[in-house]
């Protein structure tokens, strides 16, 4: 395991919004291409440390950003 999780949201627009909201909350995140095995979407997803996964989900939920899925990210 890589120690990262990937947060999938509705669109690249929401991924950029999620990135901003999470960074404002002091979390370290990175936009990555949506892994093809998780979604056929051609846009971006948010990579977050596994240890921040629950807090990140909480921050997004409070900001009203709908999460499609959160998955562990393979190496």
């Amino acid at each position: 395991m890589s120690g990262f999780a990937v947060i999938l949201v509705h669109s690249t627009g929401h991924a950029v919004q999620a990135e901003r909201v999470l960074k404002r909350a002091g979390l370290t995140v990175k936009l990555i291409p949506t892994p093809r095995h998780l979604s056929s979407d051609c846009g971006s997803a948010v990579r977050i440390a596994t240890t921040d996964r629950d807090r990140g989900a909480d921050v997004l939920s409070k900001a009203g950003i709908a999460i499609d899925r959160i998955e562990a990210l393979d190496d």
């Binding site: 669109s11 690249t12 627009g13 950029v16 901003r20 936009l31 990555i32 051609c42 846009g43 971006s44």
Partner: peptide, 18 residues
């Protein structure tokens, strides 16, 4: 163009829209 690709310039465009 925002929303279409995941490269840094597309993301930068998306940030402008946000």
């Amino acid at each position: 163009s925002p929303g279409r690709s995941g490269h840094r310039l597309a993301n930068e465009a998306e940030r402008i829209r946000l």
